[in-house]
Design a protein around this nucleic acid. Structure first.
Lengths: 342, 342
DNA sequence: CTTTCGTAGTTCATCGTTGAACGAATGATG
DNA sequence: CATCATTCGTTCAACGATGAACTACGAAAG
């Protein structure tokens, strides 16, 4: 008899795994009949079903996903590619996607691109991935050209950043509208010198530009002047960028009584820097962020933020990727969550 | 020359993905020869290799992972199961695992168990998963019995919580030692009334108990009394639990000048509550956490924390799962990162 | 001159599962 | 009684890639 070690030496990982045929031989029927019992297809008499089911359990049968997928073309898996799991927004989004997928009894494979164009392109081409039923991609660096020359034909849904005239469905909040709402909130609080933290001059910056546009729209609509000295550029959307932007703002000596940060990490970094320099939030400077990450509920002070409906993003993206339709753009609802910072 | 669109138009029943045979026909060789070129096996003349490689690129060939895996038994994928991606510690750990896996050119499939025993058991049995080369499981609710009756034979590595006399390798920090170091740090700062936040009376609580033991060891070694009124239990390790524990501590009227929180989220929640009640950190109460999540570097005040080497956890866990060895327990190094809160 | 060896490929079977197509009973219907 | 539908199950051929075994040919070795 072949021992486990011998099998391992052969390089076979799934050692001794029970197959349909094993179960079939045990019961004395054909493999297909067992397959029918497992999948509820075809006709099998109740008594036989019972016997097969017993054998399935006692032999510990579990279907081989690779074979199943090779045959049927379906994998029951959807890949999700996000820039950075260590960013709370993406981690929370991933969490929602996993949850939504579980509801549909499919498995989510999560990948991390680091916002790297090569990684994103390779993922969208399905390189190095098992064959998937779909791909949900939150791309930062990918461009329309990459998508036009995509090798893979698996359904693709894009999140967040907008990519040119892409022929794929896209799920996102209306960044301009949401940014305008955030700025309006500060204006309604009586703030007149509102700084924006999160402009980006190079790299992937579509989100940044849309939020900046919303910020400017709100100011203009309120009859407030646009002062470029109040617009702080950042390299990335991390806490450290927010902190450095706030410090530059303070160093510059330009007066401001509010900050609209383009995401919560920037806002939290900025609040941290403000606190260190003795500026009180919200007394001296009101701060509003974007994303409504959990952390903002426990910061000091708690962070007011634009809250996109992450569960809806997850749900809709999954539906679109599993049931491919036209390349429509879906706008996700958002709310302003009022907390202590503004 | 046949263009890609023509190939598509031929209507391969499955998907229009290029197979080895397509490439082989195009070049006029056997499928196996193309396979040899792709994998660098066998002997293929340089000129032919060149021609095949051209065809591979022009036809956009990508290997079918399911077929490859069905044949070879290897999938190039490792599953990682974590309780909650929305918890920064796990998100950061996942991020490190993805990075470490990329270095070894393997893919990581991330799952979320919600700390649910059923989910954990099903994962450890490989139910609903593609055949994997290994599983890295951070289990909360799984018990030794579940593991003993594991159906799957995929290499398994456990993270964090210790599970009985498990026959599987285990990677974790020495919780007791680290907790003692954290408490020692507070003692060295001259604190005498040190509260602990994070004791757990029911549910999965091994980590909690070990950290509590370390806390007590440190107090005893320093000749400080053990006061149960200073030990706060929590339901989970979330910010809200930390906040409520801090509030209960304040409400109880028991005096304390320091808090050792069993993780950073508890610490941040506690700091938030303390700030709301006008208690200054670290002037009135010093706070130290555990995990060293990124957020602690930008909280107000910044959070001193026990920092387990997450990159090392990821690296070692991957090595152990890919190169199965004895069921050893690996202790991960940690550091105390001193910031403003203690 | 035969044998061995190295190179450069081929063919074939197979991994585990499932769709398609095909019996073989049983009972109902005209 | 012949015909047809229904039920219950079977066999067969793939899905795409690859290890094992085999062919063919020239060159070197004995």
């Amino acid at each position: 008899m072949m021992r486990v070690r011998d099998a391992l030496a052969e390089g076979n990982t799934a050692v001794n795994r029970t197959t349909l045929k094993d179960v079939a031989d045990h019961v004395g029927v054909s493999a297909k009949t067992v397959s029918n019992v497992v999948n509820g297809t075809g006709w099998v008499s109740p008594e036989l079903q019972e016997r097969v089911r017993e054998a399935l359990v006692s032999l510990g049968y579990r279907p081989n996903a690779a074979a199943r997928q090779l045959r049927s073309g379906r994998s029951g898996m959807v890949a999700v590619a996000l820039p950075e799991l260590s960013q709370p927004y993406f981690a929370e989004l991933a969490s929602e996607l996993v949850r939504a997928a579980q509801d549909r009894s499919i498995t989510v494979l999560i990948n991390q691109t680091n916002g790297d164009r090569d990684s994103e392109r390779r993922l969208s081409d399905g390189v190095g991935l098992p064959v998937m039923d779909g791909l949900i991609l939150s791309a930062l660096a990918l461009n329309a050209d990459d998508l036009a020359h995509r090798l893979d034909t698996t359904p693709l849904v894009l999140l967040g950043e907008h990519i040119g005239q892409s022929p794929f469905p896209h799920v996102t909040v209306d960044n301009t509208l949401a940014a305008r709402a955030a700025t309006d909130h500060l204006i309604a609080r009586g703030r007149k010198r509102i700084a924006a933290i999160g402009a980006q001059v190079e790299g992937p910056n579509e989100t940044s530009m849309l939020r900046l546009a919303g910020y400017r729209e709100a100011l203009t609509a309120a009859g407030l002047p646009l002062d470029d000295d109040l617009v702080m550029t950042v390299e990335a959307f991390h806490r450290s960028d927010g902190a450095s932007a706030a410090n530059r703002l303070l160093d510059s000596g330009v007066g401001f009584d509010a900050v609209f940060a383009f995401n919560d990490l920037l806002a939290l970094g900025a609040m941290h820097a403000l606190a260190e320099r003795g500026v009180h939030v919200p007394a001296d400077v009101a701060v509003i962020g974007f994303d409504d990450i959990d952390e903002g509920r426990y910061s000091t002070p708690t962070l007011t933020s634009v809250s996109p409906d992450k569960a809806a993003i997850a749900r809709i993206a999954l539906d679109l990727v599993l049931e491919p339709g036209p390349a429509i753009e879906t706008s996700i609802p958002f709310k302003i969550i009022k907390r202590a910072s503004a």
